[in-house]
Structure formats: C-alpha cells, structure tokens
C-alpha cells in the first residue's frame, strides 16, 4: 500500500467530519455584527402617544430588552405571554419597536394581549428596523446601560432562551450596578 493511494481516503474523512458538524448547525441564523457594538441611533413616535418620541437615549442607564414585534407576526403572538410575565416580575424593562405595522391594530393588539413594553416605537417604514439589522421577527436585543447591544435573539423567545442566555446577562448588570 502506497501512502499516496491513501490521500483520497483521508480527504474524504475530513470532508465527512465537516458534513457531520454541519448537521448540528443552522445555516439560516445570521449573527448580527451589531452585537458588541453601540446600538444605532433612532427616533420614533411612541405608539401610545405619537406626539412624544422614543429614542436611543431612553434606553441608557439600565439594562433593557428591546423587542421588535408586529401584529402580523405569528411568532410574536407566541412569545408575548412570556414578555408580559417578565414585565410583571419587574426583572428588566422591556422596550418595543412596532415594525412595519398599522397603528390602530397595533394598539388593539396590546390592549387585548397585554402591554409589557415601557414604550413601543412606531416604525411604519421599517427604517429603524433596518438600522438594527432586523430580518426575522420577532427579534430581541439585550442592551446594556451604556447603550451597547450585548445579545441578540432571532425568533420567538422561550423560557429556555430566557433562562440560559438573556437573564444571566441581565443579572450580571444588576450585580454590577447594585
């Protein structure tokens, strides 16, 4: 047996290992370049009071969640009770961006299912969403007291994601500040 005849087998073995690793990955999840960086500036009319603005500066000073939602988004409906419970527990303040939605239905939606948000920005054109690199609703950002994005989750939140990823981050900031 000559070593050079072994080369194809070795190359194939490496390839098979790679393919095996691939089975455990989700190729559709795109990590955001914004994580670790400062949240983008934005200024949106508030859903409950369009005369007032919701801006980046409103997020500063405490750790917060920024949840991008819409009434047409099925996953948003699924995760909503979780957000309502979280808001009620007072663990963390939750802000919303109402993405590419209609004004009236959005308000009705909050009235019917509960409003966990300190406030929601009304992003009819989706421009703030684009600045946040939003591509699949719902999306949830964890933003630290200095206004940096420390974590992003795409898709509906579930208790596991909350416990394993989001709440530890939130607690670490609480520990630091208090």
């Amino acid at each position: 047996m000559k070593t050079r005849h072994l080369v194809p087998l070795l190359v194939f073995a490496a390839l098979a290992v790679l393919l095996g690793m691939g089975l455990d990955l989700n190729p559709r999840i795109v990590p955001s370049p914004l994580v670790g960086n400062s949240a983008p500036e934005f200024s949106l009319p508030r859903l409950e009071d369009p005369a007032r603005r919701f801006e980046r500066s409103d997020l500063l000073g405490r750790v917060s969640l920024l949840n991008v939602w819409a009434t047409w988004c099925v996953g948003c409906r699924d995760e909503h009770p979780l957000l309502v419970d979280l808001a009620r527990s007072g663990t963390v303040s939750i802000f919303g961006i109402n993405y590419k939605d209609q004004y009236r239905p959005a308000l009705d939606w909050l009235r019917r299912y509960g409003n966990p948000y300190v406030t929601s920005g009304y992003d009819a054109e989706g421009l703030a969403g684009i600045d946040f690199g939003v591509y699949g609703l719902p999306e949830t950002f964890v933003i630290d007291p200095q206004g940096n994005i420390v974590y992003k989750h795409v898709g509906p939140l579930d208790p596991a994601v909350l416990e394993e990823h989001i709440l530890p981050i939130v607690r670490s900031f609480e520990g630091a500040s208090g």
């Binding site: 047996m1 000559k2 005849h5 072994l6 194809p8 087998l9 194939f12 073995a13 098979a16």
Partner: peptide, 12 residues
C-alpha cells in the same frame, strides 16, 4: 469510505 479504502489497498 469503503470504496476509497479498497482503492488504497489495491491501487498499488
């Protein structure tokens, strides 16, 4: 893998 092993063994 089988075919390439066979190849490695017999190609010589």
């Amino acid at each position: 893998g089988g075919a390439l092993t066979l190849y490695a063994a017999r190609a010589g």
